[in-house]
Design a protein around this nucleic acid. Sequence first.
DNA 1: CCAATATATGAGCATATATTCATATATTAC
DNA 2: GTAATATATGAATATATGCTCATATATTGG
Lengths: 97, 97
Amino acid sequence: MTIMQEFQIQTLAELFSAFSDASRLKIIAILAEGECNVGRIAEAAELSESATSHHLRGLRQLKLVRSRKVGREVYYSLHDDHVIEIYETGRDHILHG
Amino acid sequence: MTIMQEFQIQTLAELFSAFSDASRLKIIAILAEGECNVGRIAEAAELSESATSHHLRGLRQLKLVRSRKVGREVYYSLHDDHVIEIYETGRDHILHG
DNA sequence: CCAATATATGAGCATATATTCATATATTAC
DNA sequence: GTAATATATGAATATATGCTCATATATTGG
């Protein structure tokens, strides 16, 4: 076990907080399928566009997703494979833990 | 990507919620070192015994920790290696993500 | 330029969460 | 038995969180 400083523990808590909400997990699962714009994410996750946008902002600030603007649309994608890894580690636990 | 039902997503969110708080992460890190009783967990995590007990109850209900009573003390330990795996996957992300 | 569309943002509100404090319960020592 | 110790629990409170609604900011098409 690596020694963790107080601020690192706080950072880790914030990371897991991103995964601690069903709406955000849906968004992450959708983006795991590939890049997607806000409107379609909202539709697929059954969320308002506003709520979706708020969540995406949080995920972007935590560097869990990236965004790319194309015309008036903004395409989001997972920032890196670590995100899927965390998601899947948790998922494996509840499915066959 | 496995198809996840609504209630499974909710369950997954609850699992990650357990890791979304610095106090609980400290408790988990302490228990990763080995079994420990409530008083010593509280001391090591710099939490009140009451707060510690409340957190342990939540972790126990989620089957992330086990408890074993010895006299008037109660020893807690991580329920299984999945818990460490989730913790470490997140930790690796923030340390070298 | 103006209207339509896509996304972002801030305020407000309702609910959830973490903590403390007081108290309860269980066990041991005397 | 009673006192002391370890842990658990419920209520209260303060703060955080997620959503909606209204509005703002692009961007495109006419």
